[in-house]
Design a protein around this nucleic acid. Structure first.
Length: 667
RNA sequence: GGAUCCGUGGCUCAGCAUGGAUAGAGCGUCUGCCUUCGGAGCAGAAUGUCGUGGGUUCAAAUCCCUCCGGAUCCGCCA
């Protein structure tokens, strides 16, 4: 037995001394249980790696606190090999653990129930450790350095610059934004990219319309943002083209955009204005970027030529000399088991007319993100963005200006890439990934992640820029936020009439509450769930919502403000039995943050954070209801509870930061 | 035709990767709780053949297969 069991990550300075590689795996509360169980089992049978793995998996949270704070079902798994009943094994192991429990202060006792081993903790001890940790690390609590020295590129938003972000694009952006925050908390260097496809057919369609004065049919409302108006024009262009069948002219615009400098400049300036408009929307929602990557800049940087020469050296990429794909540069994926069942194992990368396909571009882009191709891309710093906590972040962009800007920064060279793209592009993203595998870049292949999510749809149809149905449904991001704002304003007006005298304060609270509502709503679903857009769901402020989180946070804040002048004992003078069930639950939830941060990032599931945040808030609200803090029954209890509130306040703040939800002081 | 994903109370969803105790939330409905740190809250009630049928297992919402219903993908479109 070790002298001391460590079950929380060490702070940074200590980490460097010893636990550098494994420290984050020994985070959680489960660690001392693991130790205790290992001790007990090794007296019964030989420990091997498989058994250790099984043991680790066996530790779970029981359905109710009456069945213990943690439990293990390991007795079931051991039943066969030990040829005993689970019941009997659980009994033996429990008494074994109880015999050594003096060495493990955290465990009060273990109990065998119906084959399970249920553990009961010493919460006074447990809380003491946690409280000291949080007090020391404060707003760093929950961070780890598992990603130290590594860089991830998160690409998200990436809409065609012809329209505003609609609610579905916002889902994309928020999932990506939370992922980038999570990775930062895991110690990674994070680069957020937003790909601007100004060379595509959608832009050509719009430019065709502008050149032919189609936009004059759509009047711009004086309050309307540029991108909203542009999106309506774009949709109108499609119906005009549909009616007139002048698609060939759009083909010509596609060519002109590439060859005619005047047309290019015109297109670029329109797109730039649209992107500016899109950025304003993103910022309102707390989303920032590091780098805007323009497709036209990328295209002309020679990226594809470089990627092509890399691919040409590989046997799976070749020029087709005969058959229907004659003259095309293709990828052969047929020998990969994942593509066996596909009708066509051959994917065209360069058309017979010499123009690379979309997927080829994506492969080039992916290679560039890993620093495997090094195009000459001109970049410049566009501006400094300020986030909800007042931190500034520089926004860079690729540029077509023939000037070298004096400040440069290194982009690309990632160790991991996360592309936030809709589920309909799963097949294409697979091709991108497997191309890396074919190039023998096994490591890059494994580190390429497609964060796939399903769309946010209108009750009857899909949202599409082409049909313009986002406009009738008021489903563009700014409109949804406005509607949520109105809803929150109504609530605030009825609940806080006193705020009418502080209109500016009221406006800030309402704004932040509505951002909280929307961000939380878009992140709380599994990415595999299609969200049906109903405004009353999006703007809901009660129950499993963002404002619920803020509300518990504000409650804690108010208590701390009121207790500021009070004296309380710094030493924990309570005994275990003073701690109520609700308090125990809250302590257990506070312990979970580091694990959630690790697990949500590893599995690319922002939902884990929203779920945790809701459970944590619920625990606090229950505690709030049953435990008086300022008028506590005794001085020791008061001191303990103030500490608990303080810890919750810090951890909730950390959680809200990861979710990108701005704080409020009151609501 | 082939592939992938989804199907869980009236509604909206977690849970499935790694099978374990009574299948969890929120909304809505009903009943309580404001002389108590702010009720956007809390406590409680009712509502479930976890799409269907089979299989594996001591144990299946979870793993495997069948069928039904819905979505998406399988372009020299982007």
């Amino acid at each position: 037995m070790k002298d001391r069991i460590i079950f929380l990550p060490k702070i940074e300075s200590e980490v460097e001394e010893k636990h550098i590689s494994i420290w984050w795996t020994i985070l959680m509360i489960d660690e001392f249980l693991f130790e205790a169980l290992t001790q007990a089992i090794s007296k019964q049978t030989e420990m091997d790696e498989e058994l250790l793995r099984m043991l680790k998996m066996s530790i779970e949270i029981p359905p109710t606190l009456e069945l213990g704070e943690r439990s293990s079902n390991i007795a079931f798994k051991l039943a066969k090999s030990l040829r005993k009943s689970p019941f009997e094994i659980a009994e033996t192991l429990s008494s074994e653990i109880n015999a050594i429990r003096e060495k493990i202060k955290e465990i009060r006792y273990a109990e065998a129930v119906k084959g399970y081993i249920n553990f009961y903790f010493d919460f006074r001890h447990l809380f003491n450790i946690l409280d000291k940790r949080i007090d020391r690390e404060k707003h760093k609590f929950g961070r780890n350095s598992s990603g130290r020295g590594k860089k991830i590129i998160v690409e998200h938003t990436s809409i065609n610059p012809v329209k505003p972000l609609h609610i579905g694009n916002l889902r994309n952006a928020i999932l990506g934004d939370i992922m980038s925050r999570l990775y930062e908390w895991n110690g990674w260097e994070v680069e957020v990219q937003n790909l601007i496809d100004d060379y595509g057919r959608q832009v050509a369609t719009l430019i065709w319309g502008l050149l032919n004065n189609v936009h004059l049919d759509i009047s711009r409302n004086y309050k309307e943002n540029f991108d909203v108006w542009l999106g309506r024009v774009y949709s109108h262009c499609n119906s005009v083209l549909e009616a007139s069948q002048r698609w060939k002219e759009v083909d010509q615009v596609m060519i002109d955009m590439r060859n005619n400098p005047a047309i290019y400049r015109f297109m670029r300036s329109i797109c730039q204005e649209c992107v500016d408009s899109n950025l304003e929307t993103a910022w309102k929602h707390g989303i920032t970027y590091d780098f805007l990557v323009w497709e036209s800049d990328i295209s002309r940087s020679g990226i594809w030529e470089e990627a092509q020469s890399l691919l040409e050296r590989n046997e799976y990429f070749y020029w087709e000399k005969e058959g229907e794909n004659e003259g095309c540069f293709v990828a052969y994926l047929g020998h990969l088991p994942e593509f066996e069942d596909k009708k066509n194992p051959i994917k065209i990368f360069i058309r017979s007319n010499g123009v690379p396909t979309y997927v080829a571009h994506d492969v080039g882009l992916q290679l560039w993100k890993y620093g495997l191709v090094t195009p000459k891309l001109r970049i410049r710093s566009l501006l400094k963005q300020e986030n909800e906590h007042g931190k500034t972040k520089e926004l860079w962009t690729s540029t077509d200006y023939e000037i070298d800007f004096p400040y440069t920064r290194k982009f690309g060279n990632a160790d991991r890439v996360c592309n936030v793209i809709g589920v309909e592009q799963e097949y294409l993203q697979e091709i991108v990934r497997y191309s890396l595998k074919l190039l023998d870049l096994e490591d890059k292949y494994r580190n390429s992640y497609h964060l796939s999510y399903k769309h946010v749809n209108a009750p009857q149809a899909r949202f599409s820029g082409r049909s313009g149905n986002w406009y009738e449904e008021r489903a563009w991001a700014d409109a949804v936020l406005e509607d949520t704002f109105d809803e929150a304003m109504k609530v605030l007006t009825s609940k806080r009439p006193d705020l009418d005298e502080h209109p500016e304060n009221k406006r800030i609270i309402t704004t932040n509450v509505s951002i909280a509502a929307l961000r939380y709503w878009l992140a709380k679903f599994s990415t595999e769930t299609e969200i049906k857009f109903r405004i009353e769901d999006a703007t809901s402020l009660e129950g499993d919502t963002g404002p619920f989180l803020l509300y518990s946070y504000v409650r804690a804040k108010k208590i701390l403000e009121k207790s500021k002048q009070m004296k309380f004992q710094s030493k924990l003078a309570i005994v275990d039995s003073d701690i109520s069930l609700n308090e125990k639950q809250l302590i257990l939830d506070l312990y979970r943050l580091p694990e959630v941060i690790k697990s949500a990032a590893d599995s690319f599931q922002p939902i884990q954070v929203t779920k945790y945040a809701f459970e944590l808030s619920s625990s606090f609200n229950r505690f709030y209801e049953t435990s008086r803090v300022i008028n506590a029954e005794s001085e020791p209890l008061k001191s303990f509870r103030i500490k608990l509130v303080k810890d919750f306040h810090i951890i909730m703040q950390n959680v809200l930061q990861i979710l990108g939800i701005p704080l409020v002081d009151e609501m």
